[in-house]
């Protein structure tokens, strides 16, 4: 291994921002998160996303979003963030009594 140098250059992939990739499989469906990749800018991110995530025509539309632009809810706050929905079972249709003879409700 003495005649090959291990690259430790400043142009490593780590200098490339991280992008999250979203794919719309077909018209009518929404974009779904597929994974992430590193690319120097948005256009190359789209091209790389095409090469990595759609080799089998898995999508008709690609979104790439800088990972730093994604604001996520804190998993530790999950209980308190979603608590308002917990006790409001009357938001579900099954909570309501519908007479058997009545249709279309």
């Amino acid at each position: 291994m003495s005649d090959v140098k291990v690259a430790n250059d400043a142009t490593s992939a780590d200098d490339w921002p991280l992008w999250e990739v979203f794919i719309r499989a077909r018209q009518g469906l929404s974009h779904k998160h597929a994974g992430s990749l590193h690319a120097p800018d948005a256009e190359m991110a789209i091209q790389n996303a095409r090469d990595i995530y759609t080799r089998r025509r898995e999508g008709e539309s690609l979104w790439v979003v800088r990972s730093t632009d994604i604001i996520a809810s804190d998993p530790d706050d999950k209980e308190s963030l979603f608590e308002p929905a917990e006790a409001k079972i009357y938001r579900h249709p099954t909570f309501y009594t519908v007479p058997d003879e009545v249709e279309c409700l």
Binding site: D9, T11, D15, W16, P40, D41
Partner: peptide, 8 residues
């Protein structure tokens, strides 16, 4: 990699 950075 360098070319991609320069291009960007």
């Amino acid at each position: 990699r360098e070319a991609a950075m320069a291009h960007a």
